[in-house]
Design a binder for these strands. Structure first.
Length: 276
DNA sequence: ACCTCCCTGGCC
DNA sequence: GGCCAGGGAGGT
């Protein structure tokens, strides 16, 4: 992971709060948050009393390995945040999951729109889950261009849709896909299989810088402020976005008007002139 | 490979 | 009062 020079994202990080500590209690306050658990009643028994061995991440999935082979998987959806708090700290609204450790701290998942979730897998369940099908992490394990090219060959899917497919690359979301394609000068609707090596290389070159810039500015809080940093502050990447949300504004490169279309069911912003 | 659904707060 | 945004999974 990159340094986070401008934004201190947590008062106390999730990883130090969990790693090496034993889980004392788990509370799922909104049943929907455990909808991906085959039997939601399994969650406490699979976690309580077990020590956290490792805290990792693939794309947008946070993966916490505990003793006896269980893996706690958390996803923040679009409006989720994780907060490390002391037991006596007042709870924010929409605190939907609370994981307490024997160090008397809590990791709280706050998620107004409840697109996030928590699930605890056995090794077999993990192997059968969508986690096992995730592509390489877009930041930590970005494949070389020839490998990306090979995986795009013959595919008619729009490149934007492919970038959002977590089985292709794990970690890119709607806003960042648009920014990457704008910087790479590739039309989001181009069929993946039609891209030539130089275009794929251009896309690849932009992936890490765009993600790093987003991280450095604390992510992208939109006008509705549903996404917030763990401490409740807004991320400030919105002001740096070059195309996302800028329909009708002038392209910074060629002054054409930025257009908005729907691609793969998601709002998609691009320059009709310099993205080809 | 596509479309629809889930959910809620903020906005028109 | 209704629309919209996001990520992922399920269905067609």
């Amino acid at each position: 992971m990159p340094e986070l020079p401008e934004v201190e994202t947590t008062r106390r990080g999730i990883e130090p709060a969990l790693a090496g500590n034993r889980i004392a209690d788990v509370s799922v306050r909104r049943a929907r948050m455990s909808r991906r658990q085959p039997n939601p009643a399994d969650i406490p028994g699979r976690l309580i009393g077990r020590k956290v061995l490792d805290v990792g991440r693939i794309g947008k999935f946070l993966i916490v390995d505990v003793e006896d082979g269980f893996s706690l998987v958390m996803h923040l959806g679009m409006s989720g945040r994780l907060l490390v708090a002391n037991l006596e700290d007042p709870e924010d609204a929409h605190t939907n999951v609370v994981i307490r450790t024997e160090a008397h701290e809590e990791v709280r998942m706050i998620d107004p729109r409840t697109f996030g979730f928590i699930v605890v897998y056995t090794p077999d369940e993990l192997a059968d889950s969508s986690i096992a099908a995730l592509g390489p992490d877009a930041f930590d394990a970005l494949p070389r261009s020839p490998q990306l090219l090979a995986r795009m060959e013959g595919r008619s899917v729009a490149i934007k849709t492919l970038l959002l497919d977590q089985r292709f690359l794990a970690g890119l979301g709607n806003i960042y896909a648009d920014e990457i394609l704008y910087r790479a000068k590739v039309d989001p609707l181009r069929q993946a299989g039609s891209l030539v090596a130089s275009e794929i290389s251009a896309i690849r070159k932009q992936i890490r810088p765009v993600l790093a810039a987003g991280l450095a500015h604390g992510g992208t809080s939109l006008g509705d402020l549903t996404y917030l940093l763990p401490d409740g502050r807004a991320g400030e990447y919105l002001q740096r976005l070059r195309v996302y949300g800028r329909v009708g504004e002038e392209c910074r490169r060629c002054r054409s008007k930025i257009i908005k279309r729907v691609v793969g069911g998601r709002s998609t912003f691009s320059c009709p002139t310099c993205q080809r």
